[in-house]
Computed example of a mutant assay.
Amino acid sequence: MDGLLIDTEDKYTIVTNEILQEYGRPSMPWSVKAQLQGRPGPEAGKIFHDWAKLPITPEEYSTKQVALAEKYFPTAKPLPGVVKLLNDLHATEKSDKPVYIALATSSHKRNYHLKTDHLNDLFSLFPEPRRVVGDDPRIGKGRGKPLPDIYLLALETINEELKTKGEQAIKPEECLVFEDAVPGVEAGRRAGMQVVWCPHPGLLTYYKGREEEVLAGLTGEHKDEDKVDAEKEAEALQAERISRGNHSGKPGKLNDGWGRLVSTLEDFPYETYGITVPS
């Protein structure tokens, strides 16, 4: 959602830089911003504070951040091409070649509403049961992006709906993930899904020359290093793989054709993915 559907990644940057400037710190560079995008709040917060070294506690920083977020988030706007893309995809659901859309965002429920309540016409295109937010209790602790859980859960919400209609379940390899963040691309690839990467120009510049690594989910910059019990984690993940499609949980391979880089969601090539939009 953030930075892909709406311009809130830029608003996060504005909020962060306002606080940094208050304490005479430099603006946040893309080398740091790239690590925060798409990650759950606690993990992103640790990375940020390790870099920023502000003379205030993380709790004090959070209080300032929340106040500024309440100012900026309700002004969020859709990014170019988003309104048409979502309406087009939504329109296929009643056709003979339906595409089912779900939302998977690391934003917690409170922030989700701050960013989207004024954009109800757009976000109502995602049925309520198919909206997965970062603090969804069905996502295990520490299982945010770049792990695949959030996208597998989004697929489950679709399949639960199809099951009630007596329709065949959709497989991970039949899914297309739209992402702007590098850990999000990795999460999509680990879920066994194809991915469209639509990054911020600043992020794309930072990863110049490494685009194929990103598209395969192979940058290796977002590994989880703080697992308490690796054996139990492995057992849980294995059970998850079986129940959610028996995918490998591993990223892709370089130049395997399952990742595509686009600079904007305008004029999206539906035909490339076999999508037919009703006229």
Rank of each mutant, 00 (worst) to 15 (best):
K223D: 14
E59V: 02
L215Y: 06
V99P: 02
T16E: 10
G45C: 03
I56W: 00
D121V: 04
I150T: 01
F126P: 03
H49R: 04
E70V: 00
L237T: 06
H49E: 04
H113I: 13
N111W: 13
R190L: 06
E59C: 03
Q37T: 05
T272Y: 00
G38V: 01
D180G: 09
L5G: 06
Y207A: 00
T63S: 08
L86Y: 08
H118F: 10
L176A: 07
E221H: 13
H113V: 14
A236C: 00
K141S: 07
H118I: 10
E233F: 08
G209T: 07
V15D: 07
S106Q: 11
P40E: 14
A91D: 14
G144R: 06
P55T: 01
H247M: 13
E266Y: 03
P80T: 11
P29V: 06
L254R: 12
E70C: 07
L5Y: 08
L119Q: 06
E266A: 13
K71I: 11
T116I: 04
E93H: 09
E18Q: 15
P183T: 02
H90Y: 15
E266Q: 07
V32D: 01
L153E: 02
S62V: 00
W197I: 04
N246F: 09
E240S: 12
K33P: 06
I14Q: 15
W30C: 05
S279L: 09
G38W: 12
V32I: 15
K208P: 00
Y270D: 04
L153Y: 04
R25N: 02
I170C: 13
K33R: 15
R260P: 00
V133W: 04
R25K: 15
D224N: 15
I275W: 10
P251E: 08
V228R: 14
G184W: 03
L155G: 03
S106F: 14
K223N: 13
F268R: 02
D229E: 10
Y206H: 15
L265V: 10
Q194H: 13
T16D: 13
P172V: 02
G257Q: 05
A104F: 10
L147K: 11
D96G: 06
L36G: 05
L162A: 07
G249Y: 10
E231G: 03
L119D: 00
R138E: 06
D149L: 05
I14T: 15
